[in-house]
């Protein structure tokens, strides 16, 4: 095909007018830089200097650093706050986590590839916090839990958690809360939502049955267990206040703090600023969610039980004010 090799002879009709040819000669007018990777992809940021904690939260909550609405996420969020480790939160789901459970911490980008790996919650995260906190970690947080605190910690898992799960997942009146928190953000499709709701409910049910070792969901017994757990925790908290008061009476007379922390119970404080510890974070993780008005609980039975124990309520408020800046 010889025609294609030689350019066709210019005809007057089809010739491009001069100004337009000049314009097209300047195309492309501008070459844009390539698009950035999505913001959530780890390698997109090279200049981020704070770690990100991926938790269950809303986009608004992530922007303002509000407490998460998931107990285990809130526990670690509080631990990081107590350690004064600067971090930001990001909404996420279990599927995004390397271990299959939130929360996990993504450290700031580093030249060493192994330092870029996400840190799952648990002892690894705790050690990371201890190692990377800017100022010395409060003694209350760095010290291991006493054996008595370990025993009281089992109250949260064995007695309070089943009642909490029942109240959130299985109480029909609280279905809107459950949907708004865990189901609706996942998908907008009706069938996906319905299936997911059924799945999380079934999981909660089997978890309760496994923990309580009863043959069926005995609602009254669940709430009675929760109440006994609250009562025992309240007693432990007030023991702390009486112990620290006897110390305080000798040194300074007035102005006892409004509510004590669990960790400040047994030994006298050298520093004037009282700090919370791991145990406080564990308790606060449940009490804050139970008492949070913003979640719009319809069935407030668990919250009503908790409000009978003013020490725990005051503890929650003090934690909120101290570490989350909520008055």
């Amino acid at each position: 095909m010889p025609d294609s090799r030689a350019p066709p002879a210019p005809t007057r009709l089809l010739a491009v007018p001069g100004p337009i040819a000049a314009l097209f000669n300047r195309v492309p007018l501008a070459v844009y830089p390539p698009n950035d990777l999505p913001l959530r992809s780890p390698s997109s940021e090279t200049h981020r200097d704070t770690p990100i904690l991926y938790v269950f939260t809303t986009p608004d909550g992530a922007r303002t650093g509000a407490p998460s609405f998931n107990p285990s996420c809130l526990k670690w969020q509080t631990v990081l706050k107590i350690a004064r480790l600067p971090f930001s939160t990001a909404p996420s789901t279990n599927h995004a986590s390397p271990t299959g459970a939130l929360p996990f911490l993504l450290p700031p980008p580093s030249a060493i590839p192994s330092n870029n790996l996400p840190i799952p919650s648990g002892d690894t995260l705790f050690n990371h916090v201890l190692a990377h906190a800017p100022s010395p970690v409060p003694r209350s947080l760095a010290e291991p839990l006493s054996t008595r605190q370990e025993a009281y910690l089992s109250l949260l898992d064995a007695r309070l958690r089943p009642a909490f799960l029942y109240s959130l997942y299985l109480t029909p009146a609280n279905t809107p809360v459950l949907s708004a928190l865990y189901v609706d953000p996942t998908s907008s499709a009706f069938f996906v939502r319905a299936t997911l709701l059924r799945q999380v409910r079934h999981a909660a049910e089997s978890e309760i049955l496994k923990t309580t070792r009863r043959g069926f969901l005995d609602v009254e017994a669940l709430y009675a267990d929760a109440q006994s757990a609250f009562a025992a925790l309240e007693t432990l908290l007030l023991q702390g206040i009486s112990a620290s008061k006897t110390d305080a009476d000798e040194t300074k007379t007035g102005g006892p703090t409004s509510a004590p922390f669990f960790s400040s119970s047994d030994d006298d404080d050298d520093d004037d600023e009282e700090e919370a510890g791991l145990f406080d974070a564990e308790v606060f993780a449940y009490t804050n969610i139970i008492l949070d008005q913003a979640l719009c609980w319809n069935d407030t039975r668990l919250a009503d039980l908790l409000r009978r124990f003013p020490g725990l309520v005051a503890h929650r408020e003090r934690m909120l004010a101290t570490y989350f800046g909520v008055a």
Binding site: A151, S154, L155, A158, S228, A231, A232, L233
Partner: peptide, 8 residues
């Protein structure tokens, strides 16, 4: 309170 906590 100890009895409740330690039994659990």
């Amino acid at each position: 309170a100890d009895a409740v906590a330690y039994s659990s």
